[in-house]
């Protein structure tokens, strides 16, 4: 059987994105924290995951955003570039649209507040809860951070416990540590 060449394959994947036919275009992006699975919908960045194995991610995206999920490099390029710059220490703010359509109510408010926590600073779960209008909801904020659809870009690594401990991170505490060190928010 004649197989599809790599060139023809990427030509189709590019055309599919260019014609605006995809619910989500995704690619795997290299980073100092390991491979990142990055997905872009028609509204913007909709997923960054440390779980780079595509199969489970693709299924999840299809359920949330629509069945037309396809690996396609070009739509992911702006996010890839900005992540590269961030990890090289050349970027402090991401200039990307974020698609939070799957987040509801309080979860969405919290994620929007999270986006305002600046590079190199940390806040606490309780503080973030208060900024989102529910000062007693620190625990709920912890859950929302754990399910942050776009870590790094929405900086849940900047949220720590009231006593300064790192508490937890969906990508593992070591990664949270690395990110805070990169931003100069931790000395060691």
């Amino acid at each position: 059987m004649t197989n599809v060449s790599a060139e023809l394959d990427s030509r189709f994947r590019a055309a599919a994105a260019e014609e605006g036919l995809l619910d989500v275009a995704y690619d795997v992006v290299d980073s100092p924290l390991g491979e990142l699975f990055v997905g872009i919908s028609d509204r913007g960045l909709c997923v960054i995951s440390y779980e780079a194995d595509p199969d489970a991610q693709v299924e999840r995206l299809a359920r949330g955003f629509g069945s037309r999920v396809l690996r396609s490099t070009r739509p992911v390029d702006p996010a890839r570039r900005q992540l590269d710059e961030y990890f090289e220490g050349k970027r402090k703010r991401f200039d990307l649209d974020v698609d939070l359509r799957l987040a509801r109510d309080f979860g969405r408010t919290v994620l929007e507040e999270l986006g305002r926590v600046p590079f190199g600073e940390v806040t606490t779960y309780g503080e973030l809860a208060a900024r989102a209008g529910k000062p007693r909801a620190a625990r709920a904020v912890g859950t929302i951070m754990n399910r942050n659809p776009v870590p790094i870009v929405l900086p849940c690594h900047r949220v720590v416990g009231a006593n300064g401990s790192l508490v937890g991170y969906a990508g593992g505490l070591e990664r949270k540590h690395q990110l805070l060190r990169l931003e100069g928010a931790l000395l060691a």
């Binding site: 004649t2 599809v4 023809l8 189709f12 299809a62 999920v69 396809l70």
Partner: peptide, 30 residues
């Protein structure tokens, strides 16, 4: 998901188009 569908069928579909069209199957594939 379309990715799964595409990966599963791209090679047999391309082979089918090659049989039907010979050269020029690339455009028809896309």
């Amino acid at each position: 998901p379309f990715e799964t569908f595409y990966e599963e069928h791209k090679d047999p579909v391309f082979a089918h188009l090659r049989r039907l069209l010979g050269q020029g199957a690339e455009d028809a594939f896309q």
